[in-house]
Amino acid sequence: MTMTESNGTGYLRGCPESQDSQLTAHDRDEIFIAVEDLTYIYNHDKAGGHRALSGIDLAVKAGEFLVVAGPNGSGKSTLARHFNAMLKPSGGRVIVAGMDTMIPENAWEIRRRVGMVFQNPDNQIVSSLVEEDAAFGAENLGLPSEEVKKRVEETLRLIGLSQYAKHAPHLLSGGQKQKLAIAGVLVMRPSCLVLDEPTSMLDPAGRVELMETLIRLNRTMQVTVVLVTHFMEEAVLADRVVVLSDGRIAVSGSPARVFAEVELLAELGLKLPAALEIAHGLRKRGFSLPQEILTMDDILAYLKNN
């Protein structure tokens, strides 16, 4: 994550110097997704239902970059699927942009605003032509073909896939396929992107590239991003981290606050990002490092002056 670390962290941690004027138009404290006392039980109707989420309270602010982490089976995907009304709460409620996901009539409006990207890029590509696939969402909105064409061109350019517009998706690399999946939802001009482990099948370069894309979208276009991931190096780049365990929120807050819970994270079997692990080890040896250290760049900056 070399490049993202040096470019992206300032904004993502809310440092005011990199905020541009556009953002003030957007109320930073406006809540985009409100989750209230959410419980979800798989196969609720049948005996032996499985409680995957219990009593989740969470508010995703507009323009925020939120990471959801947690061990396998902790309920991350289940939670993410509530954000675009693919799943409906068994208890409690989820309000997206003011709309209750329980009301079937809202589903379509919600999905237009919340774009969802999944782990396996292969299973979300519908067409055997890149530009046709990018167009699918916009076509479903019933936009005139000129508008669809314009949006597809714009989006492919934004994502950096323009030169592949006429290619077959199976000829793209994993990282490119995942970018195509993002383009496929961006044509609907959503205000929020929800991504479920989008980098887990990518190589290092693909991973870095995808994170850069997300950070750019979040920064320059004020897209709210919810990223489900196992990679803690990605989590430190977020505004806020929510850690799930066994269907409940174990800890949530700024990366600094969450990663300060060293014992809790160890108990959950999660790993600290390498920079924090090093900083933690150094403190144990009796060095007094500043508490704000999160990324490799922070360590670097500290060591530079000492």
Binding site: R111, M116, V148
Partner: peptide
């Protein structure tokens, strides 16, 4: 799931690029 997430709801009201 991916198609529904991209607002697919059948052929009605659908346009073509």
């Amino acid at each position: 799931v991916a198609m529904e997430s991209r607002c697919y709801r059948g052929g009605a009201n659908r346009t073509r690029m």
